[in-house]
Write a protein that binds this DNA or RNA. Structure first.
Length: 581
RNA sequence: GGAUCGGUAGUUCAGUUGGUUAGAACGCUGCCCUGUCACGGCAGAGGUCGCGGGUUCGAGUCCCGUCCGGUCCGCCA
């Protein structure tokens, strides 16, 4: 038996008079006395069926309901009223025979693009949600990105090599998911946070160019763009310097943009140092689709008797073009916005550079016209511009202004979903200080190579914060989509790095002895990068959350609400795994 | 660990200062309809207002606790 001769998305005017068999899901039923229209859906599209009881009394569509799976035989005929919104809108099927392959109870939400279902119910019935064409397109885009990645990397002689999921728990970084070992009492595997050490060992083994589109696991709290299990495009290369890596992988992203979105990204990918990004954008992943850079105006505004400024460590401005018409109400609303706990600023100072050249500020009591002009000049504002100013502790103020910059751009429509701007952020610090734990952590990871000229600073704690690494992030529209580094490949430097991070020699040997050992047998210089595959797919599909590009995602609490996982295990399992209940 | 918003019909939501029998839309059921594609018309069914406690003559509404979900901070080498 042949279930179908065609899909629901392919029949056109040229097929008129053909006899066909279609199978799919009932999307909607529209009954008009003795004739009934049924929209039949599969992943390829929708085809309208015509059930005409005047032709045959068996063609009564009354038994059908939404989401029934049916098979129909019939003839392709021309529609009297065409529907130009459907690819199959010029034709319909005059049904001669139909079979209900499987009935459906009434679905809890309607299976249409603009569904009435909320997140919760859609996740519980994810298999129904996945029938919706909007989600199906995301999943198809994900596959397209996967294919484009494999194609590019294969053409550049990368090998896809699988690495194990049951590995060893390591210190630092994210929390590990842990798996108890039945055969090795009181011992545990960990699921990999990334295949980092394995790919480095593959370089030692001479595989030269490796990649994997691979699941990684981190037991940390979730966000809209963070899942406990997520997918990376994980890559590593031998005998490369930083420039080689940047070239190779901006090529990859350009290839993906071309293949998946048909975008010719001809211009070179912009580059800036981490320090430059922090100073001019207030964060390490600037959105460069628009300007509105942060301007440090601390020197310009202090000493004028305005306590808010005089007491601040750092005062920063952004210039919002053509917004002097902002009303008091809008300014008050922005002020409330920066006062929200997530931003946590005390207030917002404003200077309006009016079209007539007159400057007005929210702190006119302390500043005369000329002093306001100095602020305008320092921040490169001209007539018609609105200057927004935040002040306070440097780190917090930079971060808050970075958020305000994005918020203003969103309000002004400057963050267009169909515009893609790539950026390399370079020269990240090697180390960062964790106030809470009072220790230095690796900014990227402990295998990242410091810049050679900074290696000697690893002997001086006071210079730790100044050590830069050969580490780089790729940023797309203000999202970190990938990050990597040139790695340490000498045993002594790696040991020094572990020591810097506070590991004793014994701990380093216990946790990473295999890697230190490998470095003694002729490890080649190497480096690599890993891209957040889910995040990349979310951006390319215009999705707000990576959940929209993952077939079976977890919710905010790390739960799979469809499976109801995680769940309790039975007593027998506790016993076998040598766990106490 | 913390902040914040939400939980009312199958679904998405409204519900005023605490006050009669808790509403709308979509969906669902039945009937009518030969050209719809957001079909239309008529009729109807459908509710433990997340859960527990309290205040009150009276609680969907106020208070306390708790569970669930969204977003964010911390965290995410």
């Amino acid at each position: 038996m042949t279930y179908r001769t065609h899909t629901c998305g392919e029949l056109q005017a040229k097929d008129i008079t053909k006899s066909v068999t279609l199978a799919g899901w009932v999307q909607t039923i529209r009954k008009f006395g003795s004739i009934t229209f049924v929209d039949l859906r599969d992943r390829y599209g929708i085809t309208q069926l015509l059930f005409n009881e005047a032709l045959n009394t068996r063609l009564d569509a009354t038994p059908l309901g939404r989401e029934f799976v049916i098979q129909v035989e019939g003839k392709v005929i021309e529609r009297s009223n065409k529907n130009l919104q459907l690819s199959t809108g010029e034709i319909e099927i005059e049904v001669s025979n139909f079979t209900i392959l499987n009935a459906s109870i009434v679905p809890p939400f309607t299976i249409v693009d603009d569904t009435d279902g909320g997140d919760d119910i859609r996740m519980k019935y994810r298999y129904l949600d996945l029938r919706r064409s909007a989600i199906q397109q995301n999943i198809q885009l994900r596959y397209a990105v996967n294919r484009a990645t494999r194609e590019y990397l294969h053409n550049n002689h990368f090998l896809d090599i699988e690495t194990p999921f049951l590995i060893k728990s390591t210190p630092e970084g994210a929390r590990d998911f842990v798996v108890p070992s039945r055969m090795n009492e009181q011992e545990f595997y960990a699921l990999p946070q990334s295949p980092q050490t394995f790919k480095q060992l593959l370089m030692v083994s001479g595989f030269d160019r490796y990649y994997q589109i691979v699941k990684c696991f981190r037991d940390e709290d979730l966000r809209a763009d963070r899942q406990p299990e997520f997918t990376q495009i994980d890559c590593e290369m031998s005998f490369v310097n930083q420039e080689n890596v940047l070239q190779m992988f901006e090529g990859l992203v350009k290839h993906i943009l071309k293949t998946v979105k048909n975008i010719d990204y001809a211009q070179p990918v912009e580059r800036m140092t981490w320090e430059h990004a922090m100073e001019h954008y207030g964060n390490d992943k600037p959105d460069i689709r628009f300007d509105m850079k942060l301007k440090n105006i601390t020197q310009t505004v202090q000493g004028k008797g305005f306590k808010v400024f005089d007491d601040a460590e750092y005062i920063v401005a952004i210039v919002v073009k053509n917004c002097t018409d902002y009303t008091r109400k809008q300014i008050d609303e922005l002020t409330d916005w920066v006062k929200r706990p997530q931003i946590g600023m005390g207030g917002l100072a404003v200077v309006k550079y009016q079209a007539d050249g007159i400057l007005k500020s929210s702190f006119d009591k302390f500043f005369n016209e000329e002093q306001l002009k100095q602020i305008a000049d320092t921040s490169h504002a001209t007539a018609n511009d609105l200057i927004l100013i935040l002040s306070g502790n440097k780190t917090k103020t930079q971060k808050a202004m970075s958020e305000l910059r994005l918020e203003m751009a969103s309000r002004l429509g400057l963050r267009k979903a169909d515009e893609f701007k790539l950026l390399w952020v370079l020269d990240f610090p090697l180390l960062e200080y964790n106030e809470e734990e009072q220790i230095w952590h690796a900014c990227h990871h402990p295998f990242t190579s410091p810049k050679p000229e900074h290696i000697e600073w690893m002997n001086d704690k006071n210079k730790f914060k100044d050590i830069k690494a050969n580490a780089y992030d790729m940023v797309l529209n203000g999202n970190e989509i990938g990050g990597g580094s040139i790695r340490i490949f000498q045993r002594d430097l790696q040991e020094k790095m572990f020591a810097t991070l506070g590991l004793t020699k014994e701990e380093a040997q216990e946790k990473f002895g295999f890697l230190l050992g490998a470095f003694e047998y002729g490890a080649p210089p190497h480096g690599g990068i890993a891209f957040g595959f889910d995040r990349l797919c979310a951006i390319l599909s215009g999705s707000e959350s990576i959940r929209d590009v993952i077939a079976f995602p977890k919710n905010n609490s790390g739960r799979d609400v469809m499976l109801n996982a995680p769940s309790a295990i039975d007593d027998k399992q506790y016993k076998e795994l040598h766990l106490k209940k």
